[in-house]
Design a protein around this nucleic acid. Structure first.
Length: 142
DNA sequence: TTTCTAACA
DNA sequence: TGTTAGTA
C-alpha cells in the first residue's frame, strides 16, 4: 500500500459533491452501490463518504452505462476475477457480442480474441491502465 | 439543508 | 430510474 494509494482511498467527498463530480443522480449512485459496483465509506451518521477511487469508478460505470452495457456486464469489468487471461478474453467477447452490430466488419472474431488476450496478458504483467476500460471501449458504439 | 432508507397514484 | 415520505 503506497502513500498515493492511501490518498486515493481517503473518503473525502459527500454525496452532493459526488453528484456534481459525476453528473449522476443520488439514486443512481446508491443503486450502483447496492449492486456492489462501489463501496463508499460511511460516517458515524451513516452518511456515505466517497474516495477519489470511488469517484473514478463511478465515472467508469457512467461511461459503460452510456455505451449500453448492463450492470451484470459492468460487474465483470470491475470485479477482479480469478480467471485466466483466456477466460477473461472469452468473457469480454461475450459482452461485446451483445452489441454485435457495432463491431467493425474488418476485425474478425479471431483477431479480436487475439488482441484481447494480448492486452490481458500485458495487464497481468503489471503494465498500466486496464485494457478493459481503455482499449476495449474502442469496439463499442460511439 | 443534506442525506438516508424504503417504497410506489 | 424518478420521486416522495419521514428521519437523522
Amino acid at each position: 500500500m503506497t502513500d498515493d494509494d492511501q490518498r486515493r482511498n481517503m473518503a473525502l467527498f459527500s454525496m452532493g459533491i459526488v453528484m456534481k463530480l459525476t453528473d449522476l443522480t443520488a439514486r443512481q449512485i446508491r443503486y450502483y452501490e447496492q449492486q456492489g459496483l462501489v463501496n463508499p465509506a460511511r460516517t458515524v451518521g451513516n452518511q456515505r463518504t466517497f474516495s477519489f477511487n470511488d469517484v473514478e469508478r463511478l465515472l467508469e460505470i457512467k461511461k459503460w452505462i452510456e455505451k449500453g452495457i448492463n450492470i451484470a456486464g459492468i460487474k465483470q469489468m470491475i470485479n477482479p476475477t480469478a480467471h485466466t487471461a483466456e477466460q477473461q478474453s472469452d468473457e469480454a467477447i461475450a459482452l461485446i457480442s451483445l452489441s454485435e452490430t457495432t463491431l467493425p466488419e474488418k476485425l474478425s472474431r479471431k483477431q479480436m480474441h487475439q488482441l484481447l488476450k494480448q492486452e490481458l496478458l500485458e495487464q497481468r504483467h503489471g503494465s498500466k491502465a486496464s485494457m478493459i476500460q481503455g482499449q476495449l471501449s474502442r469496439f463499442f458504439k460511439k
